[in-house]
Simulated scan of single mutants.
Amino acid sequence: MTHSAHDKFFINLHTLHNAWRLREVLPRNLTEPVPYIANREEFHHEMARKLQKTNPRKPEKAKERARDTRKRKKRAVELEEGTEDEQSGAK
Rank of each mutant, 00 (worst) to 15 (best):
T2P: 10
T2W: 03
T2L: 13
H3L: 11
S4W: 02
S4N: 10
H6S: 14
H6T: 13
D7F: 04
D7G: 14
D7C: 09
K8Y: 06
F9N: 08
F9S: 13
F10E: 14
F10W: 10
F10N: 11
I11H: 05
N12D: 15
N12A: 11
N12H: 04
L13G: 09
H14C: 07
T15V: 10
T15P: 03
T15R: 11
T15Q: 14
L16Y: 02
H17V: 06
H17E: 15
N18C: 11
A19M: 03
A19T: 04
W20I: 07
W20L: 11
W20D: 15
R21G: 05
L22Y: 08
V25K: 06
P27Q: 07
R28C: 04
R28Q: 12
N29G: 01
L30R: 00
L30E: 14
T31C: 15
E32I: 03
E32N: 04
E32T: 04
E32L: 11
P33Q: 04
P33K: 01
P33Y: 00
P33W: 01
P35Q: 08
P35D: 13
Y36F: 04
Y36Q: 09
Y36D: 14
I37Y: 02
I37G: 04
A38S: 09
A38N: 08
A38W: 00
A38C: 03
A38K: 06
N39G: 03
N39S: 09
R40S: 08
H44G: 06
H45P: 00
M47G: 01
M47D: 09
A48K: 03
R49W: 00
R49G: 06
L51C: 10
L51I: 12
Q52C: 10
Q52Y: 00
K53W: 00
T54L: 15
P56W: 00
P56H: 01
P56F: 00
R57P: 07
K58Y: 03
K58Q: 12
K58H: 05
P59I: 06
E60G: 06
E60P: 01
K61D: 14
K61A: 10
K63V: 07
K63N: 05
K63T: 05
R65D: 12
R65I: 12
R65T: 04
A66F: 02
R67D: 15
D68P: 00
D68M: 11
T69L: 15
T69I: 12
K71Y: 07
R72A: 14
R72K: 12
K73A: 12
K73I: 14
K74P: 01
K74V: 02
K74Y: 04
K74L: 11
R75A: 13
R75F: 05
R75N: 12
V77M: 15
V77E: 15
E78M: 10
L79Q: 12
L79W: 03
E80Y: 02
E81T: 08
E81R: 08
E81P: 02
E81M: 14
E84K: 07
D85K: 07
D85M: 14
E86T: 11
G89H: 06
A90D: 12
K91N: 09
K91R: 10
